[in-house]
């Protein structure tokens, strides 16, 4: 048996493809990002080592400040929207008295399977100033609120965050719903006998019992917000002006449009650190509770 499980040739054969692929296309690139963030490099040749100059430069860059701020705004909005609305929807769909639960489940999850391009372009059409669904609706209802939703430098980032939140709320909803189903119904029966409303029961039972699920949802939405890129790329191009830049967008522009690869990698390094810090903080703040049932 030991010879069977300790077959060195088989082990090497089995792990090699994964190790090579992962090392070459994920691990090595991350090291490259860290390493090159200390270089002045145009993507060709050797580049010049410039120490922390890129970091000094980036912390003076007003676009960088906007980008960090936008990442935080984006993360905050999608967290509140997705976890808040996702929770309420999951509570409601888990309620056996509600009819058509399967239908609702599918409807809420449906946007998740769409491509981000489709969702962004759909909402571009909804927000279109002249012909968009939203302004047309306002017209019909008779509210004079018609405006160009994405051309306002203060509003645009919120609109983009909303589109992301709308797209993926079903994902958090499904995660939470799966979590709720795993909680034994005896808990809710006990709460019912004690006279608690179903909403109160969720506050007192579901949320504490699902602390692990919530932790995961938080990590997903916060790192997702910090990484935001596609909505900006498709819907505003970082504009108006530079008002909807995020770190990823800054990185993309530096590398692929102005060929400052070193500077782009600095932005990428800060992004990785941001995400790591966020993940560690969330794990620290929501302490792991071992719940047995």
């Amino acid at each position: 048996m030991n010879r069977f499980f300790g077959n060195k040739k088989a082990i090497a054969l089995f792990i090699l493809p994964a190790m090579v692929l992962f090392t070459a296309l994920v691990f090595y690139p991350v090291l490259q990002v860290l390493f090159r963030s200390f270089y002045d490099w145009d993507g060709l040749g050797k580049g010049i080592f410039i120490g922390v100059d890129n970091y000094i430069k980036i912390f003076d860059d007003t676009i960088f400040k906007t980008a960090v701020k936008n990442g935080l705004i984006f993360a905050a909005i999608i967290t509140v929207y997705q976890i808040g609305i996702g929770s309420i929807l999951a509570f409601a769909v888990s309620n056996v008295r509600i009819k058509g639960r399967n239908f609702f489940r599918i409807v809420y999850f449906l946007p998740v399977v769409l491509s981000v391009t489709v969702v962004c372009q759909l909402w571009l059409n909804v927000f279109n100033t002249e012909f968009g669904l939203l302004n047309k609706l306002m017209e019909v209802v008779g509210i004079d609120f018609r405006q160009s939703w994405l051309d306002d430098r203060y509003k645009a980032i919120y609109v983009l965050a909303f589109v992301n939140a709308w797209h993926y709320v079903g994902y958090q909803f499904a995660l939470l719903l799966a979590g709720i189903k795993s909680i034994p119904s005896t808990y809710y029966e006990a709460a019912k006998i004690d006279g608690a409303s179903s909403f109160l029961a969720h506050i007192k039972i579901t949320i504490p019992m699902l602390s692990e699920t919530y932790k995961f949802c938080l990590v997903m939405s916060i790192t997702g917000g910090l990484n935001a890129f596609t909505q900006m790329y498709i819907m505003t191009g970082g504009g108006p002006g530079t008002s909807t830049y995020t770190l990823t967008f800054l990185m993309y522009r530096s590398a692929f449009q102005t060929y400052q690869y070193g500077y782009g990698m600095t932005a990428a390094t800060i992004l990785v650190i941001e995400c790591l810090v966020a993940t560690i903080l969330i794990n620290k703040l929501i302490a792991r509770k071992h719940i047995t049932y």
Binding site: P29, V30, Q32, V33, N227, F229, M251, Y252, L271
Partner: peptide, 8 residues
């Protein structure tokens, strides 16, 4: 994050 290693 995938985005972070786009350049390399």
């Amino acid at each position: 994050p995938v985005q972070a290693i786009l350049i390399p």
